[in-house]
Design a protein around this nucleic acid. Sequence first.
DNA 1: CTGGCAGCGATACAGTGTATTGAACGATAC
DNA 2: GTATCGTTCAATACACTGTATCGCTGCCAG
Lengths: 237, 237
Amino acid sequence: MTNELVWDRPEPPSRPSPTPLSRALIVRTAIELADAGGLDEVSLRKVAAALNAGPMRLYGYIETKDELLDLMVDEIYGEIRPPDPSADWRTGLRHIAHEIRSAAKRHEWFVDLLGGRPNRGPNSLAYMESTLAVVGFESIDEVMGVVGTVMAYVYGAVRNEITEIRAERSSGLTEEQWQRASGPYIERVLATGRYPTLARFIYDGSHFDPAQVFDRGLDYVLEGIATKHSPGSKPGG
Amino acid sequence: MTNELVWDRPEPPSRPSPTPLSRALIVRTAIELADAGGLDEVSLRKVAAALNAGPMRLYGYIETKDELLDLMVDEIYGEIRPPDPSADWRTGLRHIAHEIRSAAKRHEWFVDLLGGRPNRGPNSLAYMESTLAVVGFESIDEVMGVVGTVMAYVYGAVRNEITEIRAERSSGLTEEQWQRASGPYIERVLATGRYPTLARFIYDGSHFDPAQVFDRGLDYVLEGIATKHSPGSKPGG
DNA sequence: CTGGCAGCGATACAGTGTATTGAACGATAC
DNA sequence: GTATCGTTCAATACACTGTATCGCTGCCAG
């Protein structure tokens, strides 16, 4: 008994010449999806679909989803241009801080993944290398303290900035507008008089360019380091 | 036709006097679960199960899971003791920084939620109020810049510290041990000679008490602020 | 032509947040 | 005392996640 309707099978069962895949291609696709729609758009099914593949196919190139995320982070580290090696520590660190900030603005999801787990990819290591190298004190411990402090500030500041951008986007309002006009809740709370300083800030504070805010904070940090390491107070002392 | 086996229904269909619930109780339970096993243990089903309830019952008290997370964060803010209002700005900010750090060590998940979305709960607002109030410069803009900088540093530093603790716990090794002995990967990479400073740090760096590292960085930041606002350089100028 | 093999798809499973549905209860109206 | 109503909860269902397993398919070695 010959089976009927053999001629309109859903697809010719022969392979439809699957797109060739590679780690790099998968990572690039995932980054594009994340840039467009945030980390929520990076699921193995969605990434695979964007590559005309089934979800399981990715496991031939990637151990686990976390590994994919690590690769994405390392890829972004690769976008960060190292400072001029001849630069002094201050301009070098400032350069790196700005690089991180602008990378995070290009890829907002970057900051969601940054502190999450230690990163040991090649680009990440190169980034750490050039960052440590630009600080020229002799004591390696001091170098680490300085770099760690600047990086902690950069990371926290960028995270705050991105969070604010997202809140504005999702509410369609500027933070300033939001704070002034936001649902009756904040108004009511402030009207209780229990938060006088906060109220003063919200009503009277002028809101600067985020880049300026970032730079001012960075200046505080760098100035503090310079003060503690000024000529005369030898490093290591 | 009488139904057979009516007597051994899975449960007497009358209500087994369900535990009375409340927002506060739900939040407390969720925090306990998170403290014990991280945010992964906070799913609506697990929280509900810990309260002998079905998952959907929580929705009578909570709009969405994100709201639960917000409530958890606000609860932790409530644990932070405000600084002595008579303290000068420097000791006040230092106090708050330490409070945040110790709260994050008690509740490691705290840092995962911190920068995620704006927090407007009552405890969070009270925390912001007392933080802003402790900085006594006259220009509200300057206060904001100072507080924002310190908080960015604190947030980034705490996050790094918690991340390191987690990595150590999951590998069973100290970061130092890990770096020195870790799988051949790091060794091999360092052996390429492309990361001389990094190698020097890993091999020669002495690893301090995390609390000391935190304080040193905090001192950098506070010192920088003090320098820029030293008597003579009037605030607002 | 026949076997193994490698790569890939389909299926399956346990878990998630949440919408919908329906059943049981207490209180209220007659 | 009975009927109805509204509230409160549990059960079910849905779309989605990451991933283990399995079985098919086409290619290459013999």
